[in-house]
Computed example of a mutant assay.
Amino acid sequence: MPVAPPFPRLPSLNALRAFEAAARLGGFAQAAEELQVSPGAVAAQIKALEQDLGAPLFDRHARGVRLTALGQRALPEFVAAFDGLAAAMRGLRHDAAPARVHVAALPALAQLWLGPRLPALRARLPGVDVSVTALEQPPNLKRVPFDLCLFYTRELPPGAVDLGADQILPVCTPDLARSLSTPADLRHAVCLTDATWSEDWAHWAAIAAPGLDLSPRGPVFSLYALALQETLQGAGVLMAHGALVAQHLASGALVAPFAARVTLPRHLALWSLPEARRNPRMAQVMAALKHLA
């Protein structure tokens, strides 16, 4: 009679993903953030994989984890394998929906820069379906289902569209501006601050008003759009990012009480993976957003 031994099973794909992400990123917590699971789930998946192999892939210690020699040898092939799998999935998505473009953007940029430009973008490219997801940090485009990134960055990724240097300046309503003659007047004004960019007041004062002892007093907001809305309602002076308030300055709803703008060492940039730029729709969206900047 024929012999039919049990067919060797492959380890769980989730376990392999957990190992690759933890090994590439240097820890279980970082892998959990990328995979959108708990660190405990990552640890459990890797432990199961190690039990299946009969050998450890990580050394655990008080300050985290470190790859064993076995894990180090395996990592390059697993990175290449998951990069290839992600690339195949991107190609499948693009073939299934060639007119769909998914943008990941900083929340403030999604609301205040990209959002107002979407009607003009649709008018220029009527066949393109643009989706937007707000994220606090640029994602790894090799591993997530996004096509484009729109963020402030210190170093421009290869092939990125440079949409301009990040400039900061105080802004307020015209009525409030009448009470501000010199930067020193800011010491007595309500200064609105965004929690993410809490150092902006100090950066601006160091360049625009050297020697000014400015400790801004006023509310702090976790949403830049809310801080901007309060500024438009006359609640105080906002240390603004030029790209995010350009339309309000152009309309006269806000004014810059002082001429000084300070350029920060970063740029507003739009980028994608090299293979994505070969997609005609992707190239059209990037070109259109550059035109609309």
Rank of each mutant, 00 (worst) to 15 (best):
V245T: 10
A260K: 10
Q229G: 05
P257K: 00
A41Q: 15
P119L: 13
R187W: 02
P2R: 08
A235H: 10
R266Q: 15
V262K: 02
L150A: 08
V37P: 06
L238C: 06
A99P: 02
F58K: 08
A202H: 10
L254A: 12
K47H: 12
G242H: 09
M239H: 03
L192D: 01
P257G: 00
R281A: 10
M286E: 04
A256I: 06
L118I: 12
A293D: 07
V245A: 09
A21F: 12
A160R: 02
H248R: 06
A74P: 02
P107K: 05
D83E: 13
T231Y: 02
A74K: 05
T231Q: 02
R24Y: 09
Q45R: 13
E155C: 14
H267S: 14
G164M: 14
V190K: 05
L214H: 03
A105V: 04
T231P: 02
R277H: 10
A209P: 02
T263K: 12
R93N: 01
P210C: 03
G164R: 11
A69P: 11
A4D: 13
H248P: 03
P257D: 00
A184K: 02
H241D: 13
D95Q: 15
A165P: 01
W204C: 05
T263V: 14
L16E: 08
Q137I: 13
A81K: 12
P174I: 03
A31Q: 07
A4E: 13
A235Y: 05
P210R: 06
A88H: 07
D194N: 13
L49Q: 11
